[in-house]
Design a protein around this nucleic acid. Structure first.
Lengths: 117, 117
DNA sequence: TGTACATATGTAATTATATTCATATGTTCA
DNA sequence: TGAACATATGAATATAATTACATATGTACA
């Protein structure tokens, strides 16, 4: 924006400082990928469904009025992101939230939207 | 899954309970839209850049090696989601993080990925 | 008032994503 | 082992989203 040499030098310095405090490229990409997983209403619904009760794929699908295949696809994404875990009991596989981060992140998000509506 | 009448009745009841604890459809969609905003590495980078210093569009673009137009488009999305705010000073518009939720959400996300790598 | 700088916006194109359908895999039990 | 149930996977389609380019809007100052 400014064109004199001193300012440009100062600006470059500031930029370098910011870059140093910033996490590495890979970490930033991982972070955005984590949030992208939260960024779909079907997956959000699944997470809320699992918040109180462990549930199996079929019940989730029935409850959310979703296709079984769609639920399964989304659960895989949630599983890969370590947002849900599962435990097999016979034919049925019960899914549950993986750890407390999930609830905390959802709650913070909820706070944000409540305060901004 | 199970076929006897009693179980189906119990299942329906459980499902209804979960539905009651679940936020409304609109709220869930708003929440997923909030997280979708976090779900892009360009926007994440912009947010981290703004974490320490208020910055103008041009500087952000230079620092992140991004097109000015791309930065501007992303800032609009961040602005609409109330993740950043801005203050005009002459020709320049300085952007900053809107509130503490932003940092807190980013930090929780970072915690999650650090514990799962 | 016109020129230069800063930012925003419209559009087009490329790429990513969710969903459905069909089918495969895995598990139990008679 | 085969029938029935539960879940996962592959492929195709439809929709969304990011980016770049061109251009418009807004502001300051000579």
């Amino acid at each position: 924006m400014e064109q004199n040499i001193e300012f440009l030098a100062a600006e470059e310095h500031q930029v370098r400082q910011v870059m140093e405090n910033m996490p590495g490229e890979e970490e930033l990409i991982d972070l955005s990928e984590l949030f992208r997983v939260f960024g779909d209403s079907s997956r959000i619904k699944i997470l809320y469904a699992l918040m109180d009760h462990n549930m199996c794929v079929t019940d989730i699908a029935q409850m959310l009025q979703m296709n079984q295949s769609a639920v399964s696809h989304q659960l895989r994404i949630l599983k890969d992101a370590k947002l849900v875990k599962y435990k097999r009991e016979g034919k049925t596989i019960f899914y549950s939230l993986d750890d407390d981060h999930v609830k905390m992140i959802l709650n913070l998000g909820m706070e944000h939207i409540s305060e901004n509506k």
